[in-house]
Nucleic acid binder design. Structure first.
Lengths: 203, 203
DNA sequence: CCTACCGATCGGTAGG
DNA sequence: CCTACCGATCGGTAGG
């Protein structure tokens, strides 16, 4: 399987995407703006300048597209998280880095991130369950960082789960308005949010 | 027009809702779980134990239900915000109270809040534009509180808009998991979140 | 990648 | 509130 990082570079360095990649990309844009259920295969075909029936030479079904987008993003988030896990830094720095890599993944694929955050519920079983398990696993890492910080008295005695989810909701929300050509770079946003959250929880 | 506060009490004190109110309530539950576009009038009718066609003696269209839910929530948020505006407290307390009343509105109508936050994009014009203007107006109040705090040096020199939106995303996320019978009361959640956010922005 | 088409389901109406 | 039904649109297939 192609890794997200490789594919991200691919997308930036050259504009020549395969038809399947074009379908996934335009589907992400469409699903983000109209929602999965309200987006028709005819809408998607029109954006690509082909007939709806022609889409099926490249894909199996509408849901398969959604599946690819959701699981590819999940993989990207996990890959990013694994990279910071090996660092074994102290809780504050670990939280800051976890936020930074998470935001970097979002910034690299805003449309896909929006689909990941809002359209996953249209996945059918067993994919839906698999997706939710992965998401919970991912969130657990943030909770663990908080708990470790609380145990070592670096952080106040906050509710670890409530706080972790609050931090995640704050950074996830960035996908709604972030533009790579905006006045704030993703690093600046990351810096400000980490500063705010760490001040919020430190002893 | 009936105010939200009145209606909230109504809903708690007696179970006898008009058919139209039952439709709105069940539609909110349905739209929250399946999404507006994926929810059919036949789904809604089934929950109510009637035929789909029968819904139309009480409502004009599917979108009219969505409209009522979204604008009723908007009204509730505004009513709550106006109440704290008259207090003229200092920025920290003002922020804390703005967060508290916002969370109280969410806790009072979790299903409707979910629809308000996620399904508004299915509104057609001119309602969509009207909705977005109201939302921006509401958010502006949070930005103003931040700006005032920064100007009086009570808060650090953060980006007021980024910070206000971060706070809003953190408190809006509560609707996804809050249960009135959960271990944390809405007042406790409100207290913890306000503490964290104020520590995050204070000088 | 297209034309031609399918059965299913959609929101909604007529008339009682 | 129901039966009966509508035109439109949906995801997807057959066959080239």
């Amino acid at each position: 399987m192609i890794t997200i990082a490789r594919q991200g570079t691919f997308r930036i360095t050259m504009t020549k995407l395969t038809r399947k990649q074009q379908i996934d990309k335009q589907a992400a844009v469409l699903f983000k703006t109209k929602g999965y259920a309200a987006s028709s295969m005819r809408d998607l075909a029109q954006v690509l300048g082909i007939e709806a029936a022609s889409l099926y030479s490249h894909i199996k079904s509408k849901e398969e597209i959604l599946r690819r987008i959701c699981f590819r993003m999940a993989e990207a988030f996990f890959t990013a998280q694994k990279q910071i896990e090996s660092l074994h830094s102290e809780p504050k720095l670990q939280l800051k880095k976890a936020m930074a890599v998470h935001l970097k993944v979002i910034a690299g694929s805003v449309d896909e991130a929006a689909v990941f955050f809002h359209e996953w519920r249209h996945l059918s079983e067993p994919y839906l369950s698999e997706f939710l398990v992965m998401r919970t696993d991912y969130e657990r890492k943030f909770i663990a960082i908080l708990e470790q910080g609380i145990a070592t008295k670096v952080f106040r005695a906050v509710d670890a789960k409530l706080t972790a989810m609050t931090i995640l909701s704050a950074i996830n929300w960035v996908h709604r308005w972030y533009r790579s050509d905006g006045k704030l770079s993703i690093e600046q946003i990351s810096e400000q949010l980490a500063e705010m959250m760490i001040r919020g929880v430190k002893s």
